[in-house]
Design a protein around this nucleic acid. Structure first.
Lengths: 113, 113
DNA sequence: TTAACATATAAACATTTTTTGATTTGATTG
DNA sequence: CAATCAAATCAAAAAATGTTTATATGTTAA
């Protein structure tokens, strides 16, 4: 039961829902997520950890960077995330997506990743 | 987005999940729920309110009593609750269901309801 | 190997949620 | 209408979560 609760808890926070929205666009590293959500690094790390403990995301370490992405190994979580995401209008993400776009194009001219 | 969050928040608590499990057996009044979950009345009222604010349950007033039941008017909530309930083994509810049984049979010999 | 960078962690603090005990409200019954 | 019962509400205490600032860890590159 605690496992189930941890999943719902992870989903009951605006920052974390926004993170999942960003993850839907693809894998992203912590430093980019900090830029995109325009907040502090420890705060991002804290929320990433909550999502990870709930089994909603996974990480991939590569050199200095840690890339996070949606963990789609579990059907129930997968469905929960999808249906939650569907409920959040893209309008709630305008600023963030615009920063994401910026970050990604800079990326193409190489940096991490 | 806050509405979505309120739903997940409502679902991220053991007492409230147990309440929903009880509601799956049918409508129940506050005083019976207090007996079944074996806790204080204000605590029950508090959690009922959280579930109600999230749109997961509805109430029906009848004389002195208030009967609560699952609100199945919204598809998304309906599905969430069903899939959450499925994840909770009946073993987690043994004591509660046994008290529920008792309460319901006493009921038949009339009291509230 | 030192400097710089990415991320995690920790401690202190702030905020939110939950619990408790007392009280209130509303309805029924004697 | 006084007594009783069900339920809600409130204020204060307790517990859990989230934020911040500072620091630690691990990696890469100069």
């Amino acid at each position: 039961m605690q496992e189930l609760i941890s999943v719902f808890k992870a989903l009951s926070d605006e920052t974390r829902l926004k993170m999942l929205k960003v993850f839907q666009k693809g894998e992203i590293c912590v430093c980019d997520l900090v830029s995109v959500l325009d907040t502090s690094q420890p705060r991002i790390s804290f929320h990433l950890n909550v999502l990870k403990e709930a089994g909603l995301i996974k990480d991939r370490k590569q050199g200095k960077w840690v890339h996070y992405s949606i963990d789609d190994s579990d059907m129930f979580r997968r469905f929960l995330v999808l249906s939650a995401m569907e409920k959040i209008p893209d309008g709630a993400m305008t600023e963030d997506f615009s920063r994401l776009k910026k970050v990604l194009t800079v990326k193409n001219k190489s940096r991490c990743g």
